[in-house]
Design a protein around this nucleic acid. Structure first.
Length: 543
DNA sequence: ATTGTATGCGACC
DNA sequence: TGGTCGCCCTACAA
């Protein structure tokens, strides 16, 4: 049963009105519910209803089944079973070009998942090669096979009270995952000891947008929030100190309320760098906790700066991105408004921009035009990206923005992970996969799904050392590892732990077997949490 | 017209 | 019924 289909108590039919009412669907509907299978009886009732309405209201709005997107007749947008049918009047939801729908978009059908080769690819400058030889001497000639964490082994369902906004692995303690949410709460979870987890609720009052570990004391973490403050939190005690507050006088109007998004640490200089929603960058000294200087305008005035990162090789090189459609490069040593070293143009808002993790010579960006872009050698050419990869990661006001992230373990700097917005029909279930893309070719290396993850997964983070993927999907967290084919199913079952908070809906409980495990540790129970449930074996189903 | 921004609300248990 | 859930929304302003 598709998680996206909504079942009324027993409605035989629904007349689409101008609001967002979706067609009723029963199991039968789903099995043969494609195309023209309108039930005759339903048709009749509908007409009666229609005439009734007409009698009451002489000025008639057509009550014929109408597309909920364009309000025209003759087609219906929306889910048919687990497959979403696009409105043909709209540009393709995937590549944004008109003339076709997602279903037959060339970028969906293509094995290379929509790579647009950059025009400059064939005209590489010789300096480019020299640069690569000098700065990237250790890149293996043959890429090692990618090890994809494709199986969920740990999960906390409904862990946060609101959607997850960011994730961070502990830099030295291997099994600690930090998570931030829309309410500003901070989760600390030991996914090895599964039940060791807590949520600190008093740090921020809204959206915790970015977290970065303190480079000199990894027991504390910095956070940037839409409440306009930077926090520095002790992970053991949860005691938090506010390092900066951009709204010291509280709320007066939305025009003056300042929010913090991008954050990074420059450990060489002992600086915390943050940026706000008006285009300004701030620098703080990590020891004195004081502002090093006044805010500097680094993006279009009044525009949100959502990402900041110091180059891993040259920490003075700063990368920023935001919704003025640019990712920009800066030299921290002489940073002032308008002094950017380079400006990477995009067609829409840029959700994220990251240097490649080892050489720092590539840049990966995610933009709201449904394209992932890669600049292969930023020191040589910043004019245009080396590749644009069409990928579904639209903006939605209810979702944390999608961000393509490097695999920090991949020495060839080519593997990237990103959640997919559009769902696929996996044997009748609509699931939103998480994609692994080789950005040197644009090839979709893997799409991973789990029947427990029925929601969109915009937040994904690969572990810096282990073959582990962490996913934040709605309010839940998931830990993925590569499927161990050598072990028998029984053992794998033992390894797998799923914890429920809140209410698991009955469908999900049923699917998972809902066997309460009595061997729970006491502290967990005494906290009054719900039952622990072991999942059934994960069935990976292919389209 | 386009594009960015906001945090609601219908359907379900 | 009231609380919970999750988003191929959608109204509005610049």
């Amino acid at each position: 049963m598709s998680p996206r289909t909504r079942r009324g108590a027993s409605p035989k039919f629904v007349i689409e009105r101008d609001e967002d009412s979706e067609e009723s669907s029963s199991d039968e509907d789903e099995e043969n519910g494609v195309g023209d299978c309108e039930d005759d009886e339903v048709e009749e009732e509908e007409e009666i209803e229609e005439t009734k309405r007409r009698e009451k209201k002489p000025i008639t709005i057509s009550l014929k089944k109408v597309c909920k997107v364009c309000k025209k007749t003759g087609h219906q947008a929306g889910f048919q079973g687990a497959t979403y049918i696009d409105c043909p009047m709209k540009p393709c939801f995937l590549c944004k070009l008109p003339g076709h729908t997602t279903m037959n978009c060339p970028h969906r059908v293509a094995t290379e998942h929509g790579v647009i080769p950059a025009p400059r690819k064939s005209t590489r400058h010789s300096v480019d090669y020299i640069f690569e030889r000098q700065l990237r001497p250790h890149v293996p000639a043959i890429k090692p096979g990618f090890l994809i964490p494709d199986e969920v082994t740990r999960a906390v369902i409904r862990y946060h009270s609101r959607r997850v906004t960011c994730l961070e692995f502990h830099p030295t303690n291997n099994n600690i995952l930090l998570s931030g949410d829309k309410k500003g709460q901070l989760g600390v979870w030991d996914y090895d000891k599964v039940y060791e987890k807590r949520v600190y609720t008093n740090i921020h009052s809204c959206l915790l947008n970015t977290m970065r570990f303190n480079s000199v004391n990894d027991g504390t973490i910095y956070g940037a929030s839409s409440d306009g403050t930077i926090s520095c939190t002790d992970l053991e005690t949860g005691i938090s100190e506010s390092m900066m507050n951009l709204n010291p006088n509280g709320w007066s109007s939305p025009k003056s309320w300042r929010m913090l998004y991008g954050l990074d640490i420059n450990s060489e200089k002992g600086l915390v760098l943050v940026a706000d929603n008006f285009g300004y960058l701030y620098m703080l000294d990590t020891r004195t906790k004081a502002k090093v200087r006044e805010g500097v305008l680094i993006h279009k005035k009044g525009s949100k700066v959502v990402g900041l990162q110091c180059n891993p090789v040259q920490p003075d090189l700063l990368l920023s991105c935001g919704n003025d459609h640019f990712a920009r490069l800066w030299d921290l040593r002489r940073l002032e408004a308008g002094s950017s070293l380079g400006n990477l143009a995009h067609r829409r808002v840029v959700n994220s921009a990251y240097f490649s993790p080892h050489t720092g010579s590539k840049i990966l960006t995610t933009a709201q035009d449904n394209r992932i872009r890669v600049w292969d050698s930023i020191y040589v050419n910043m004019e245009s990206p080396s590749r644009e990869i069409v990928h579904s990661h639209d903006f939605n006001r209810h979702l944390t923005p999608f961000r393509a992230e490097w695999d920090p373990k991949d020495s060839s700097e080519s593997l990237v992970v990103i959640g997919r917005y559009i769902s696929e029909n996996y044997n009748g279930v609509a699931l939103h996969p998480i994609d692994f893309i080789d950005v040197t070719t644009g090839q979709l290396v893997a799409e991973v799904i789990d029947p427990n993850i029925t929601t969109i997964s915009p937040v994904n983070k690969l572990h810096p050392r282990d073959d582990v993927l962490a996913t934040g999907s709605s309010r839940s967290l998931f830990i993925w590892r590569p499927k161990d084919k050598s072990e028998d199913v029984q053992q794998k079952e033992e390894k797998k732990t799923i914890i429920y908070y809140g209410k698991a809906d009955s469908k999900q409980k049923k699917k998972l077997g809902d066997e309460s495990d009595e061997s729970d540790d006491e502290s967990f129970k005494s906290k009054g949490k719900k039952s622990q449930t072991k999942s059934s074996a994960i069935k990976k189903v292919k389209r």
